[in-house]
Design a protein around this nucleic acid. Structure first.
Lengths: 228, 228
DNA sequence: CAGTGTGAACCTTTTCACAGCA
DNA sequence: TGCTGTGAAAAGGTTCACACTG
């Protein structure tokens, strides 16, 4: 297989493979089979092979994949051979945590600015960065060529911040605010919502409890919605 | 439609609908159509109707859904009519941010303990909770009947913490550590990986740049892997 | 007659299974 | 012989379109 669009589901797994591959390289591995990589990434080997086949035929039959070369290819496809200037909006708890998060810089994401709308926050230093007022967002984005905006504000401010980011030319947004934001088609949004994740876990947790109750013969009166 | 398993994709959207519904209720809405809810949740109306149909036939043709009643049903299905004791492992930046996050308590997730393995952290107060040593994880889980464990440790510690949680009887884990963790079948894991989200955005961002270059006629020599 | 509920069509993703190659 | 690469089948998810009803 050569070129053309990589399925979304695959794009979502490439960073996981990449992380596993980098760990393997650090441990001195020079080749890896789809089975090994599958185990490290927590998926099955057929999926690994299909996913990697979208990048090209980089494996050797009977042997596996060259770790260093595969790392290079995955990085290239994901666009990690360049570094990406990131702006964070919202200097609350989460904004702080993200600003200090080593995992970003390690992977080529350079936090170039943190903005906030509150007098109390502007001027504060977080790591090596000074919090600036959100009204400067446009200038900052142009000056630093910011590619990715991260929203760490309360839900009520999320849409307005997103609008400002879009106006400033940002085309990729990572939204941590617990709110749905509307953006034009050409802008990509990914969202991370902590309490949604917990709610999903609660569903499955509850389901297990109900199943157990039924198995134990105590379930006659229980509501079974969602139990297989 | 009555009872039985709700598709995963639908479970993932129910919390979003719930949030929109609660906002609508606060604004005084008493009924809502699938179209309204779809707009608020950022999906299309057919999806909303299909999703809600898995809960039962709670709508009224020609009218829509009763907001309060639907909120109740979604909460019931998700298991949010009870509260869930949560334990956080790792009192670093992210552990702090999560502990202080109001969105959890607001939705019935009660943080009952924070554990860490470092002398420096144990004894520290975060909000109303005192950080305890991770060796007490088992006792705490039993005493507080912890249902959900949240891993906010560095990647290197994630698997061991997960093992301890599983040993302590936890069956639902939310993993923020940038590592794949292995758990037995009966344990649900959801993961949130900040740098993976950025890497996915980088892929699409790069793709846009390449497409533009091609449109501008400057793309002959560019590598087009992943461009539709 | 506006808006739900849902079969049926369609698209995406996963899994299977095996031919083909180092 | 061992492992990749990939068609084909199966499963899962989304969208369409319309019969039905309050």
């Amino acid at each position: 297989m050569r070129d053309r669009a990589i399925p979304e589901a695959t794009v979502g797994r490439l960073p996981i493979y990449l992380r596993s591959l980098v760990e393997m390289a650090e441990r001195g591995a020079s080749t890896v089979s789809s089975g090994d990589l599958a185990e490290a990434a927590g998926v099955n080997s057929a999926k690994v092979r299909k996913d990697l086949s979208y990048l090209g035929s980089y494996g050797t039959r009977g042997v596996g994949y060259d770790v260093a070369y595969l790392i290079h290819q995955v990085r290239r496809v994901l666009g990690l051979t360049q570094d990406w200037p990131v702006l964070i909006a919202g200097a609350g708890n989460l904004g702080h945590a993200l600003s200090n998060y080593k995992g970003f810089t390690a992977r080529g994401f350079r936090i170039v600015a943190i903005v906030d709308n509150s007098k109390g926050k502007v001027g504060e230093r977080i790591g090596s960065i000074t919090v600036e007022h959100i009204d400067r967002l446009g200038q900052i984005c142009r000056r630093e060529e910011v590619a990715i905006g991260v929203i760490c504000t309360p839900a009520a401010a999320a849409q307005e911040v997103a609008d400002r980011m879009v106006a400033a030319g940002i085309r990729s947004i990572l939204n941590f605010a617990p709110a749905v934001i509307a953006v034009p088609d050409h802008v990509s949004v990914r969202k991370v919502d902590l309490s949604i994740e917990l709610q999903i876990l609660a569903y499955y947790e509850q389901r297990k409890a109900v199943i157990e109750a039924v198995k134990g013969g105590r379930g006659a009166a229980l509501d079974l919605a969602g139990v297989p």
